[in-house]
Design a protein around this nucleic acid. Structure first.
Lengths: 143, 143
DNA sequence: ATTCTTGCAAATCATTTGCACTTTA
DNA sequence: TAAAGTGCAAATGATTTGCAAGAAT
């Protein structure tokens, strides 16, 4: 049932649903943890031993072009990925555990926050860094 | 006069003002264009032929540690730098000319935009991408 | 003389590219 | 069987690391 849905969804977006593409999309669907290419690779390599990182790069680039996935560049050295999410939201990166969390944004304030006179804005990103709840609690316990 | 100021400023921040460090800091002071390491290297290599990129990396890392410079990770593949600026502001990256512009933010809305319950936020970044005024006008002319 | 700074060369890491093999319609 | 998809191996580009030579106190 689920596999059928993903295949259809890809087809609707003019993407041929190869096995690799389906599994990569399903990974993103089931793990909303903003993975990078290595995380996806490690997760799928046992199941698809022939899988190469090139294919993951190719696939994600295709997904981004077709607007069903978006890139998150919250860290300087790597690109992370998530399903395309039309609801505006921000990202919080924990300095300790490196996890990235989705953050709800106030729709109105978001649009009024910046004075972008003359510039044509296509995308807006709201990134926060600090320490997440879990890591804060772990720190407390140590003391 | 200016050189003396920079040297003193570095000393105040517990940084020994070597020639390279002074010139790199002065570059950032005089060019508020959010350069990456290569841009700084190209700008200084004629004047300091022995300069290496390693030194620029070392120096910028030191400046960031000492909180007089900040990193801007608006693009996935490179780190750009700017003087540390305590006034909250955002960045706009033009997809055409790749320039990065500072953007004024509404102080109040900025703080109320996100519901970060339980998370300890240390830094917030507001990034916008699109087409800048100049490039928009160039596009119009072509038509 | 000891410590700090510089910078070369090599290593690393994420990503891209060229190309040949395989799969699929 | 032509077109599309995959994946190996090499290339690229940004950044880091190890280390030796040079400068400063």
């Amino acid at each position: 049932m689920k596999k059928l849905n993903v295949a259809n969804y890809l087809l609707e977006n003019k993407i041929k649903p190869s096995y690799q593409r389906k599994r990569i999309y399903e990974y993103l669907l089931e793990h909303r943890n903003h993975p990078n290419v290595n995380v996806i690779y490690d997760a799928l390599i046992d199941e698809i031993p022939s899988l190469s990182k090139t294919t993951i790069y190719n696939t994600l680039k295709l997904f981004v072009q077709k607007n069903i996935v978006e890139e998150i560049t919250i860290e300087g050295n790597e690109i992370r990925y998530d399903l395309y999410n039309p609801n505006s939201h921000g990202h919080f990166r924990c300095d300790i555990c490196k996890n990235i969390y989705d953050i709800d944004l106030d729709e109105e304030k978001k649009d009024e926050i910046a004075d972008l006179k003359g510039f044509k804005v296509q995308k807006a990103y709201y990134h926060f860094k600090g320490v997440c709840k879990e890591c804060l609690e772990k720190q407390k316990k140590k003391t």
